[in-house]
Computed example of a mutant assay.
Amino acid sequence: MTVIDFAAFIGRLATSSGDTILPFFRTSLTIDNKQPGRDFDPVTEADRAGEAVMRRLIKASFPQHGIIGEEFGNEREDADYVWVLDPIDGTKSFIAGFPVWGTLIALLHKGTPVFGMMHQPFIGERFSGDNGSASYKGPSGERRLSVRRCTALKEATLFTTSPLLMNDSDRAIFEKVQAEARLTRFGGDCYAYCMLAAGQLDLVIETELKPYDIAALIPIVTGAGGIVTTWEGKPAQSGGRIIAAGDKRVHEAALKILNG
């Protein structure tokens, strides 16, 4: 099967997870901490319910496929086709009532992300990509996504979810890039990568990402003409320290600082 053959099914996953998650948004939620005694890493019944419904659909339709999920672990992760699921990327925004979160759905083929979607059911937006192209569908209609040109780091708008999520060493390095950028803003989680693909910003730098945080976003950014790597310039689908840029010149300039 080709990626096109999976497109309708991925749409079903997005619709089903959105229908499951949305009734929980801006309500009183039971919030658990995945890391008691450490940094606050929240999870809610909405996260678990959203992933559970996607897993059920995948197992019913493609029982031979693998699944990597944030809430319920990994199954058959050595299969040729593997689904990577993050039911709510941006749970901290979700529990605060801000709509800067999304459901991330990625399809890997032999370890490489070949399709990704970010679905925001509250706003009704979907960003998707297959490395070769990327598209947007939402209240304002449908269109192809394309990154914008940015010739130098001094002209770039830089995003990170929060520098407080970085260790001291990585934060100090990030601040060197921040000092060179024209504008730096915080927040966004998955939305920052989608706005990069849409040509609204130029650079996203993060650390300590898991595969389910980034796998779906890679085909969206690259499909729009951007680039996503680790800080070392390696493939990003396994997570870690990640840099995404719309223009290769900005990517190269930031990498030099990150590895300086």
Rank of each mutant, 00 (worst) to 15 (best):
E232C: 10
L217W: 00
G225N: 04
K234T: 11
G240F: 04
P235G: 13
Y212H: 06
L217Y: 02
Y212F: 11
A236P: 08
V228T: 05
A245M: 09
R241P: 10
T230C: 11
V228E: 02
P211A: 12
T229V: 10
V221N: 00
G226Y: 05
T222C: 12
Q237V: 14
R241K: 15
Q237L: 10
T229F: 09
P211N: 13
A224R: 01
G226C: 06
I227D: 09
T230S: 13
D213P: 14
A224K: 00
T222V: 13
R241A: 13
A216I: 06
A245D: 01
I220M: 06
W231L: 06
S238F: 14
P235N: 12
A224V: 07
R241N: 15
Y212D: 05
G239W: 14
P211S: 14
P211H: 13
I220D: 01
S238R: 15
L217A: 04
G233V: 06
G240Q: 03
K234C: 10
D213Q: 15
A224W: 06
I218R: 08
I218W: 07
R241S: 13
P235T: 10
P219R: 02
D213R: 15
S238P: 10
P219G: 06
G240W: 02
P219A: 06
P235L: 08
I242Y: 15
V221G: 00
A244Q: 09
A224D: 02
L217Q: 03
Y212E: 04
G223K: 01
V228W: 03
V228P: 03
W231C: 03
A236N: 08
P219Y: 04
I243A: 02
